[in-house]
Design a protein around this nucleic acid. Structure first.
Lengths: 147, 147
DNA sequence: ACGGGTCGGTCCGGATGCTGGACGCACCGT
DNA sequence: ACGGTGCGTCCAGCATCCGGACCGACCCGT
């Protein structure tokens, strides 16, 4: 076979199809921070209202957010994370850490999280099996394929 | 003060300014997988050649990739990760895991990594201080204030 | 010498997506 | 009645992305 080699089927690409659009992950960040309403998100993300409305729709459709009515008469909605949405926390944390380490100004990171263990939260990615911190040099692709 | 509340200064937003453009993280993925040349990246990501060229430029400018000549006569270049680029591995892995868990078809994840410990790599995000897996409910923002 | 292939791009016109500003509607408080 | 808040939609302009064509420099086989 002369390997046609199309674009890779890949979970990274698929995930980015869901949360890779502009503002999507900042919306998720806001909800993690407890900011669940439209106007608040507009203010704290800086996204255009129109774009935000579109993003909220796609995130709800994708099952990351859930829209729920918190007021009947003037119909008012707020957005919460679904279980799938909460599982984006690792993604958000690793982005946060990279920014903290490579893009922080002299004032240090603008947002610091504390873990319930009493220390500042510094997120690390580890192997579930052995608990070691993961290094790219220590991982290999299984079945370089099957093609 | 009636909190003006502009867009949040935030490492997540800053990181996304660097790697949040379309295709950027797929380019990084390719380099992690050892695919370091232009044409290869075009084939395996599916990005338009034009867009890829632009992305490579911004990633090099941002210090994520490094361009190096591997052939003189017909000038040929390849792209490698810088130290900062390698530190994006956690981001890539958490995206991968989310996709594996939420978007995989019946065939399972299309790309499986093995850790040098002998097991399949399932990346987890843990607290560096205590080693526990991080849960959103167990973290709090430090100084919800200060402005 | 010639045709075909590879590699790493650039150029182009058209499609898609983002942008901010204005507007709409329902409600609340005074 | 009036102004303010909350949650959007609509629109027109602009930026970005898209795929396909094209390019120069080289290599290979004949």
């Amino acid at each position: 076979m002369a390997a046609p080699e199309g674009p890779r089927a890949c979970s990274i690409a698929r995930t980015l199809d869901v949360v890779g659009e502009k503002w999507a992950l900042l919306v998720v960040r806001e909800v993690f921070l407890g900011n669940r309403r439209f106007d608040g998100m507009v203010r704290r993300t800086g996204a255009p209202r129109d774009t935000l409305a579109a993003r909220l729709r796609t995130l709800v459709d994708a099952g990351v957010l859930q829209r729920s009515r918190y007021s009947d008469h003037p119909q008012r909605f707020e957005y919460e994370l679904t279980a799938a949405g909460r599982e984006l926390y690792p993604v958000v944390l690793t982005l946060l850490r990279w920014g903290d380490e490579h893009l922080a100004g002299p004032d240090g990171p603008p947002l610091v999280l504390d873990h319930h263990c009493g220390h500042q939260l510094v997120p690390e990615v580890t192997c579930r099996a052995c608990g070691e911190v993961v290094d790219p040099a220590e991982t290999v692709r299984r079945s370089p394929t099957g093609g």
